[in-house]
């Protein structure tokens, strides 16, 4: 059996799924609001209920997002020359035989995606709370409504990409968010710098 290395802690995994599920609920209800999807009432009851769920899921999402910052933000902000190289070849995703530079715990794409998520997540959260809690001020609502929807568009796009990249596009990645451990060899390929840092 291959030697396993722990890439994510239990709490980190837990938080990821909290974030994922809340995001999923928010997106589903969000879509229902956007496109008047009456079918969603089958899952959530009524639109009024959906609003309540959306609001409270938003709290969970926000909390979870804030926690995630401790896990990922410092790493995401840490960019090196390799990241630039990685970026210049788009992570090798457009090539069948890519030669990507060695990556740390997170690759450049993940870093950037996460930074995007933080920005859009904060935007969607803040604008959501404004719409929810400050309905009187038309100017703020209009701005929030715009921000909420731009962020929404980004997030649903990013999440779709994230799911693909974490599953089909990079087989074996999903394990990080299930058991938290990956084979050392696999990790060496994906995150050689990190593996080195970890002393292997």
């Amino acid at each position: 059996m291959d030697k396993m290395i722990r890439k994510a802690g239990v709490f980190e995994i837990f938080n990821h799924w909290v974030l994922a599920i809340s995001c999923f609920i928010l997106a589903l209800t969000g879509y229902a609001f956007l496109f008047h999807l009456e079918q969603m009432t089958g899952i959530f009851g009524s639109f009024a209920q959906m609003k309540v769920i959306h609001n409270y899921a938003g709290i969970v999402f926000t909390g979870s997002l804030v926690i995630s910052i401790f896990f990922y933000l410092p790493e995401s902000l840490h960019m090196t020359g390799d990241d630039l190289k990685w970026l210049s070849m788009l992570g090798g995703y457009l090539s069948k035989h890519p030669h990507v530079p060695p990556m740390g715990k997170l690759n450049t794409g993940q870093k950037l995606a996460y930074l995007g998520l933080v920005v859009s997540g904060i935007a969607i959260a803040v604008s959501g709370f404004v719409i929810w809690l400050m309905p009187g001020v038309k100017k703020y609502i209009l701005l929030s409504h715009l921000a909420h929807n731009i962020a929404f568009d980004y997030i649903v796009f990013a999440v779709a990409a994230h799911i693909y990249l974490a599953t089909l596009a990079n087989p074996g990645t999903l394990r990080i968010m299930l058991s938290g451990t990956v084979p050392l060899e696999w990790a060496r390929k994906k995150s050689p710098k990190w593996v080195k840092e970890m002393g292997y």
Binding site: Y93, N149, Y164, K189
Partner: peptide, 28 residues
Amino acid sequence: AYWGVGGAVAASLLHYVVIGPHKDDEEV
């Protein structure tokens, strides 16, 4: 929001079919 997410899914599928899963250096 409608076409974007649809497009993302479609692009992923296309990528999977045309280019396939990511291959790492060593595998190569």
